[in-house]
Write a protein that binds this DNA or RNA. Structure first.
Lengths: 144, 144
DNA sequence: CATTATAGTGGACTTTGTCCACTACTTTTT
DNA sequence: AAAAAGTAGTGGACAAAGTCCACTATAATG
């Protein structure tokens, strides 16, 4: 088991890392979308014909809140709502051309954010970074 | 330079990791404090006789917002305010016994959070985790 | 059928955070 | 020493983000 000092170091890292990502997000994400709106948009972009309730469940958002976000998106011409064939209580969401553009832009910005994160590292260090992150990912997520 | 796939992997990791920490925070932090309030409390706990403006600057919070949080803390008996000797516009903050207890509790919970994070890993894997995290920390923060 | 559950919506509200203006004091400039 | 400029803390007013509840319409279950 890890000792107290090591646990503190992990806590420090977590704090610093989330802070760093938060700062980069603030800087990079000067889009017309809030953070949650961005997540909703990306969630819809993953596969088409997603329903509002799926979005809400996957992102653990209140369904009422989600509904309002989607209304905004519709008003802004980012998503289309079409009645679901399977369940007439429900709705199928799809991105408009504008929405797809916005997704592209968000993705490009997120990529740039990562590049910024690594820009002061040498090629070799970037490889080390990637390797270490992959280790964490395997231990925490992938192997589950 | 890292390729597109690798960058995507990093983005995925970042998303998963912040999500994980967020969930743990929500679950663990069922204290009477919001996240920002927790940060303010810890900030005050680092060293005594900190002034409100120092707290606001260090945490990059609005000073007005900070002022309100501190008022709440005072009302709840978490911090004491005493007039600053050096600058009579200012205030020196200190934790009450209650406040110190709360800090202890927050720290214990944060430690527990880390332990929960690692609880499904073997000792050897925990060492791998720690090693990988240290590498990231060195590359991103410490060596700066 | 009758009951129970679910999808989406809007109203009302709370929490969180921002912006601005103000007072009281301090520091700097002249 | 007086005037000007800057700073610490506060409250009002507001905006943004998120929660809770009640409701309608439909679906699923027995």
């Amino acid at each position: 088991m890890l000792n107290q000092t090591e646990i503190s170091q992990i806590r420090n890292f977590n704090r610093d890392y989330t802070k760093l990502l938060g700062i980069l997000n603030k800087k990079v994400l000067d889009t017309p979308l809030s953070w949650t709106e961005g997540r909703v948009l990306l969630e819809i972009s993953f596969n088409n014909d997603k329903t509002p309730i799926e979005v809400a469940n996957n992102l653990k958002l209140d369904k009422s809140y989600t509904s309002r976000i989607l209304n905004r998106f519709e008003k802004k011409g980012i998503v289309n709502k079409s009645p679901s064939a399977k369940d007439s209580r429900s709705i199928e969401l799809s991105l408009t051309a504008t929405g797809q553009e916005l997704v592209k832009e968000l993705n490009a910005r997120s990529d740039q954010q990562i590049k910024d994160l690594l820009k002061d590292l040498s090629i070799d260090e970037q490889r080390q970074f990637f390797q270490a992150m992959t280790t964490l990912d395997n231990l925490l997520f992938t192997r589950k």
